[in-house]
Design a protein around this nucleic acid. Structure first.
Lengths: 337, 337
DNA sequence: CTGAAAGCGCTTACAG
DNA sequence: CTGAAAGCGCTTACAG
């Protein structure tokens, strides 16, 4: 491997001078610069970032801890993180923990040892111990989670309002009996917000019927399975808003497989605007969560914090959401109940 | 930040001794070890991997260059890469190039400077210049691509056989007129293999009809759009095998949207076994490509090569595929043509 | 504008 | 079993 020493020797200058031309950090005479550049080109010299990192104490590395990259929304967030990172010359050290607290702890240690300059954590819920550990790392961090705990730096959308607006949209479409399909029995903070938004809309419209089902999980299969029971109550409501798109599609499919028609027999709304919602038929009406932007904004805040030399990010930021109107929701005639 | 020096001073030993207990690299007296361990615990000392990396010349970093993480199959491959990496204590430096050759070049440089020990490249096609550059890096690398060029290290499945078997399956289901939906006009090596497998099956069964359409791309929208034309020929064939699942679903949806029934009016087979194929209705019959395994096996080969201190991986490996029989393909009655 | 020197935080022969 | 010393490949005051 050719090092800065070799370049200096070959160019007949000191390593200081070589360093200066590489980094453009201080004035160098045109002649010296040219000689150095020539040698660099000839030898194919590339500075060793590890050595540089050791002396500058800058790694330009951001650790990103996710549970599962195969979730499309996670990939979207990571995409946002990466794009912004690239703009500022930061690189991503990717860590998938697959919901294991031990893996998360191990990665946190690792990121510390590798001198990562900041950490982004993406996941449904994080253990208090993990949160504590992140804080103790004493570097900037930011969370994207469904269970927002006290004084965590968080970026996302206003779930109460989103759920409220979606429910209102269904009401405007003529629905009077609207149920909600949640994820876990034990509600995360975000889940609570969604349910409150849903209830608020019903209440404001003086609708008496309300019903919160739980799928027992967040995945397609959870909704597909629990849907087998829910289907028995299907005459009680004409529409259902689901806590996420996977649940919505799982529910839609069990209904379809049991020969119900969506949206003719029942309207379904999702939450998240996962890519797949546009691929299924009927296409899914859903709340648009700007995952890419969430990643991008998080990363920008993180990098700004790092650059300013601060240790922690103060603000909790809420991004705008959208209501994606597609055709899993039907407008009810007035004569129909 | 507490360094090895601080630990040494506090424990009353030399930094050599501290290093030895951290790395368990040489015998240390129990008393010394205990003192050191105690100080480490008290101070929360964590070794700086950057410094360590500089002297050991080992980064334990593998660069992974992908185009777009949001493609589920890419995420699957990365998942395999990461899991195996974790087993060997290697970390992933993630680089998404979004099909930009410039970005790929930039990342290659970066990975070199960061002293990555190996590189995995995942993408549809790579420019010759990129391939050359990868080789010049003089570190182990491996490709997953759809356009396999001479002496590239590649891991994947036998596409000729997979396509051949899928076509045969359709034939066994009673289909006589089977068309193929390819991606680009200009065929990649893998695309050629698929088409040859398709033609071989037809030929062996003495079926005269054959027809290769092209979608002009690999995404859902390409098939959805080109499907508008293909639909005009729909009476010519009873089944279609598509070059990937996104195309299959795009085609399926345009047919559905134009009120054709799948599989009653036409059977559709995909390729890849993307997660989404199980979410759509009808569920997609498809070729199962073991993306997770492809990532895992690639990574294992790469790491073995690194550990053995070799510069290049010799073998090209083919992994087993499956035929996922779901219900987008219908068995034709004998009386029906 | 330039170079010699110190130093970043480690590991590892080497000598004892 | 232990420590002093050299060195990994850089950057950056410092002095000129």
């Amino acid at each position: 491997m050719v090092t800065i020493k070799d370049v200096a020797r070959l160019a007949g200058v000191s390593i200081s001078t070589v360093s200066r031309v590489i980094n453009d950090s201080k004035p160098v005479s045109p002649e010296a610069r040219e000689k150095v550049l020539k040698v660099i080109k000839e030898t194919g010299y590339k500075p060793n970032d590890v050595a540089r990192s050791l002396v500058t104490k800058r790694s330009y590395l951001i650790g990103v801890i996710v549970n599962n990259l195969a979730n499309t929304y996670v990939a979207e967030i990571v995409r946002g993180i990466e794009e912004i990172g690239k703009m500022y010359d930061y690189d991503i050290l990717l860590c998938s923990s697959y919901f294991s607290k031990e893996a998360q702890q191990k990665y946190l240690q690792l990121l510390d040892r590798k001198q990562a300059e900041g950490i982004v954590l993406v996941g449904y819920d994080f253990d208090d111990e993990i949160i504590e550990q992140v804080k103790n790392l004493n570097k900037p961090y930011i969370f994207f989670t469904r269970n927002i705990k006290n004084n965590i730096n968080y970026i996302g959308i206003d779930h109460f309002s989103a759920s409220y607006e979606m429910t209102n949209y269904l009401i405007r479409q003529g629905h009077r009996n609207i149920a909600f399909l949640g994820d876990f029995e034990e509600r995360s903070s975000v889940e609570k917000d969604k349910i409150e938004g849903y209830l608020k809309a019903l209440q404001e419209n003086e609708l008496e019927y309300n019903m919160v089902y739980t799928a027992g999980g967040r995945r397609y299969s959870h909704a597909y399975e629990s849907g087998k029971e829910i289907v028995k109550d299907i005459n009680n409501f004409t529409a259902m808003v689901c806590s996420n798109d996977e649940l919505a599609i799982g529910l839609m499919n069990i209904l379809l497989d049991k020969n119900y028609k969506v949206p003719d027999d029942i309207s379904i709304a999702g939450y998240g605007n996962y890519q797949i919602g546009q691929y299924v038929r009927p296409q899914l009406t859903t709340v648009g969560e700007p995952f890419y932007d969430i990643g991008a904004v998080s990363m920008r805040m993180l990098i700004k914090t790092i650059i300013k030399g601060e240790k922690s990010i103060s603000n909790v930021m809420e991004l705008p959401f959208t209501i994606e109107k597609r055709n899993s929701v039907k407008k009810l005639d007035d004569n129909k109940k």
